[in-house]
Design a binder for these strands. Sequence first.
DNA 1: GGGAATCTTCACAGATCAGTGTACGAAGGA
DNA 2: TCCTTCGTACACTGATCTGTGAAGATTCCC
Lengths: 194, 194
Amino acid sequence: MNKSSTFDPDTLTPGARRILDTAAELFYENGITAVGVDLVAARSGVTKRTLYNRFGSKDTLVATYLLERDRRWRALVMRCVDARTAAVERIVAPFEALREWSADNPRGCAFINALAELPDPGHPAHRIALDEKRWLRDLFERSAEQAGAEHPADLSERLFCLHEGALAMQATAPDVDGAHIAAGLAHEVARAAL
Amino acid sequence: MNKSSTFDPDTLTPGARRILDTAAELFYENGITAVGVDLVAARSGVTKRTLYNRFGSKDTLVATYLLERDRRWRALVMRCVDARTAAVERIVAPFEALREWSADNPRGCAFINALAELPDPGHPAHRIALDEKRWLRDLFERSAEQAGAEHPADLSERLFCLHEGALAMQATAPDVDGAHIAAGLAHEVARAAL
DNA sequence: GGGAATCTTCACAGATCAGTGTACGAAGGA
DNA sequence: TCCTTCGTACACTGATCTGTGAAGATTCCC
């Protein structure tokens, strides 16, 4: 029995796993509101009844989708950060992660899109999306501190701004490699602040 | 008779004017999909029939809402640009416009939100949103050219990235003044490129 | 063999949504 | 006076959406 607003994406029944994979693809590609549970169930090769038996509600399915995406993104970022030793390189590592991530995710940031689609601040997706952003800002700040930056908070806010800009550019300027541009700027900003 | 996908927001009957004003507020605050035409009509003090007699469809109303917002934004930007003479100041003027704009628009960029909510590329809102972004990029590039920048396209892409980042931060980091941070960065980037 | 968990089948409820048809009233210009 | 424009009143359609109820099949573990 799970009454919470999300499920642990790592411990799912086979059917639930297929549902979540299908939902992740459909929600990201076509938008959360535009995709109905009937479609998710049909494309998963599963009954709608199973979907509700596993997830309880569409909102919970949406939240679980975002939660898993969050975990995958954080893991990728930490892999990039840990692979580097130089202070500046560690600071800008999330931008390298973003370049990798962007290749498979051309429709911008799933969390920003979710915030836009679900205006109700009480929706569980809000907390997940805001937590993800907060986590990245804090990571920037920790890296800046460890690099000996004079004003780690200022630097982290600047880097975060560049990161959000790169993500937004995927949707608003598809002809330009936003992640590449932001990465270049991030290097300069970080070097200047150290 | 108007068969196009938008109406000229400057030539509207009194009823249509009220409908568009109400729709603009509701769509921006609560999201386009979440707001039904019944609510828009009721809040405008108008019948749903009048809404459809004036605008023909919800999609057209949405497109007209975005079109008017686009015009207001462009007018504000041009006012800020024209008020300055120094080359660098003219380049970063849109960021000053953004600081003014952000005060009344805390839910991020209406165009990005519309793109997230309406995944169908054929929706008239898409063209309007992408045109708006393209216009700003071109404005940055023209300003960079006039200032004698060595690589105007590169500079404009960087400034655009900062601009998109500032907008996205409104939704993802409400505790920080994204427009202020981006404006500071834009100054440095512009000066370095001249 | 017994029992629990997983998933299927399928009809159905209840709500909401965009959009329409028709008839009518009021104002203003030619 | 006639005609057009603008708006009202209100019922109604057809589609779609989330979510439920109840009964049965399969699998796997004890």
